Amino acid sequence: MASRSDRSTPLTGRMVLAMLVAFFGIVIGVNVVMMKLAISTLPGTEVDSAYSASLGYEKEIAAARAQDARRWQVEAHIERGAGGAAVVQVNARDASGNPVSGLTFQGRLERPADKRADQDVALAEVGIGIYRGTAEAIAPGQWDLVLEGDSSGRRLFMSKNRVLLN
């Protein structure tokens, strides 16, 4: 009667080589798939070129100082409806508390983790110093609300605030 070890195939060099090639082939294949998925879902960068962004840094500082000197009081309110649309309302007042009228306000809802979900919100003046706009299909979660107020092509106001929408 033959024992079990007599019936089994002996382990040869070719079999060991085939097992090693199969093992590393699977590992490399999984790594390639994971790399492709990671690259295709990468949301992107904040700026395309850090050098060109740094060139405008002094202008941004000057604009922020001029904005602080105006002492405007700009309040934003966001309300997300059941259908996913978000209504953004901005109330702008000058240093004396008078409504600021005649500005062109632009809003943008930015996803902190995924720039592909960013949406622009066109704000129209619906009353003296009151600007309102709607963004469609806003998912719940954290967003950055970026507001820019322009007059005659010159930016007079800019803010960026983190908001949580339910």
Rank of each mutant, 00 (worst) to 15 (best):
A66D: 10
E148N: 11
A50Q: 08
Q67K: 12
L164I: 08
M34S: 04
K160V: 10
E60R: 13
S52I: 07
T12C: 01
R132C: 03
A95S: 13
V87H: 00
A53S: 12
R108C: 02
A124M: 09
G102A: 09
A139K: 14
R108N: 05
F157W: 12
G149R: 07
Q119V: 15
L55K: 12
V16P: 01
V33I: 13
R7V: 09
R80E: 03
T134I: 10
H77G: 01
L103K: 04
Y51W: 06
L42H: 15
G149M: 06
T45V: 07
R111T: 07
P43Q: 04
D150N: 12
R65S: 03
V74D: 02
V163Y: 05
S8V: 14
G83P: 00
N166Q: 12
G133L: 06
L55Q: 13
V27N: 06
L17R: 14
D48P: 01
V121E: 10
D48I: 01
A95D: 06
E148L: 10
S159Y: 02
K160Q: 13
S5K: 06
A137R: 14
R116V: 04
I138M: 14
A137E: 11
Q89I: 08
A82W: 00
D120S: 15
G84P: 04
T41S: 13
R7K: 09
R93L: 08
M15V: 09
R155Y: 06
V126L: 03
F105M: 15
V100S: 03
G97M: 08
Q142C: 02
L103H: 03
T12N: 04
V16F: 09
A85T: 08
A139Y: 03
V27G: 01
F105L: 13
I78D: 02
E136V: 14
S52L: 05
S3D: 11
G133C: 05
F23A: 12
L156G: 06
R108K: 15
V30I: 14
V87S: 03
L11E: 01
A86N: 03
S40H: 11
A53F: 05
S152I: 06
N161H: 12
V100L: 15
S96Y: 06
I26V: 15
A64W: 06
Q106M: 15
I28Q: 05
G25I: 10
A122V: 11
L55R: 12
